[in-house]
């Protein structure tokens, strides 16, 4: 590809975050990325209100690793950037006691992949309520009654404080529903962009 192609809209994506309560009850819970650069470095903490800007943690924590560096995030060949899937599946965006699933809008530099994208800027649009089967005792290895009793109220308060909609656990699993959601918010879908420019079948 010679020239980059431009889009006016942000792209709809699904992903999960670590969701953890803080020791002090007054402090809001933490929403953090799933992967960290190494054991000693902190997870990327997400801003709930504003767009988040991705940075390359490899360059930040180990500048000697790549002396030439790179200016753009995400950079092809590097793992940096915010990750999101183009469609919901059984496990990529559901809310459990340890993780919260939700919807993001990604823009800035956007690297399209077959099932998702990496981007430089992302804003949280909504979270999914806990999946019922993950909230009943003995059904799931993820279940923790004491933890969920603390976490669900904290999740609901976090959403209310930051005007983040809390969607039904099975929301946006249907393609038509996703298209309607995206259209109403001027968002592009991954599949539309992957097929953009391809020659239609005769």
């Amino acid at each position: 590809m010679s020239e980059p192609e431009f889009y006016a809209n942000a792209t709809l994506g699904f992903r999960k975050w670590h969701f953890s309560l803080r020791a002090e009850r007054d402090e809001p819970p933490l929403l953090e990325g799933l992967y960290k650069y190494n054991f000693h470095e902190p997870l990327c903490r997400w801003d709930l209100l504003n767009p988040n800007q991705a940075e390359c943690l490899r360059l930040k924590f180990n500048p000697n690793f790549s002396p030439e560096g790179h200016d753009e995030v995400p950079e092809p060949g590097c793992g940096c950037g915010f990750y999101a899937y183009g469609r919901r599946d059984a496990s990529n965006s559901e809310t459990t006691v340890h993780m919260v699933g939700g919807v993001v809008a990604g823009w800035g530099n956007l690297e399209l992949h077959e099932r998702g994208f990496k981007c430089g800027t992302a804003k949280i649009l909504a979270f999914f309520e806990p999946t019922p089967r993950k909230t009943r005792p003995y059904d799931s290895p993820y279940y923790d009654e004491r933890l969920s009793a603390q976490k669900w109220p904290a999740l609901r308060k976090m959403c209310a404080d930051n005007a983040i909609p809390l969607l039904e656990p099975d929301a946006l699993r249907d393609d038509d529903e996703v298209r309607c959601y995206a259209r109403g918010r001027d968002l592009a879908l991954l599949e539309e962009q992957l097929s953009f420019g391809e020659i239609p079948a005769p």
């Binding site: 590809m1 980059p4 192609e5 431009f6 889009y7 006016a8 809209n9 942000a10 792209t11 767009p51 092809p76 990750y83 899937y85 809008a105 823009w107 800035g108 530099n109 956007l110 690297e111 399209l112 992949h113 077959e114 099932r115 998702g116 804003k123 649009l125 909504a126 005007a163 983040i164 909609p165 309607c180 259209r183 109403g184 918010r185 001027d186 968002l187 962009q193 992957l194």
Partner: peptide
């Protein structure tokens, strides 16, 4: 996400307006 191989890379402009959490147009 490691199983997702890069397929295409496109660069996108800033969106015309920041994505909204609520619908911006009446359906």
């Amino acid at each position: 996400m490691a199983e997702i191989g890069p397929r295409k890379k496109r660069t996108m402009q800033e969106p015309l307006r920041e994505p909204s959490r609520e619908p911006v147009r009446s359906p």
